[in-house]
Write a protein that binds this DNA or RNA. Structure first.
Lengths: 94, 94
DNA sequence: CGGCATCCTTTTTGATACTG
DNA sequence: CAGTATCAAAAAGGATGCCG
């Protein structure tokens, strides 16, 4: 369980995973959805999620650049966990 | 969900919650169960969990001192969440 | 036994500016 | 658009020692 928390415990990782659960998103879209995140932080969280194999980063060789992020198969297995977190939060939020 | 992660996202909080789910524990017992945690860190995590109303701290006015930690009613509602985290970790651990 | 105080090092985060 | 670079600041964590 410590391992699981390490994977989703980052400041923004939970929300990123949740948002990507809704569908593929571009860097810019994520940045708008996660108010108050700096590009630097967002980049780092995305890289960690990618290294952990939870999300997939797809780069299009275009101008202007286009990068899409989506859940990997492994990332999708987190669905129930994310769901449990959200349910509890909705029920017990201050 | 960010709120939920804040509550259980600390370095040791998940394990503490899990262990207290097994039953009431004393400070010393927790320290033994959580290898490598320093008293300072353990104290701080316990205080935060207490302030969040997830655990109960009971002090006995004895010599030597005795302090017991246990889950609060609110803390017990986290059971399914903890369970989901553990299940996922067991299934997908490296 | 169950801490708190102090000091120090490591890790994380933010703000701002700039680039392929 | 999707980042990187750099600096500064804050938060977290460990080590050690002392106390009621």
């Amino acid at each position: 369980m410590e391992a699981t928390l390490d994977l989703i415990g980052g400041q923004w990782k939970g929300v990123i995973l949740f948002r990507l659960g809704e569908g593929t998103k571009r860097f810019n879209e994520l940045q708008k959805l996660l108010k108050r995140v700096t590009p630097r932080s967002l980049t780092r969280q995305l890289r960690e999620l990618e290294n952990d194999g939870l999300i997939v980063r797809k780069v299009y060789a275009e101008v202007p650049p286009k990068v899409e992020y989506s859940l990997s198969d492994k990332g999708r297995t987190l669905g129930p966990v994310i769901g449990a977190l959200i349910d509890w939060g909705n029920t017990h939020a201050l």
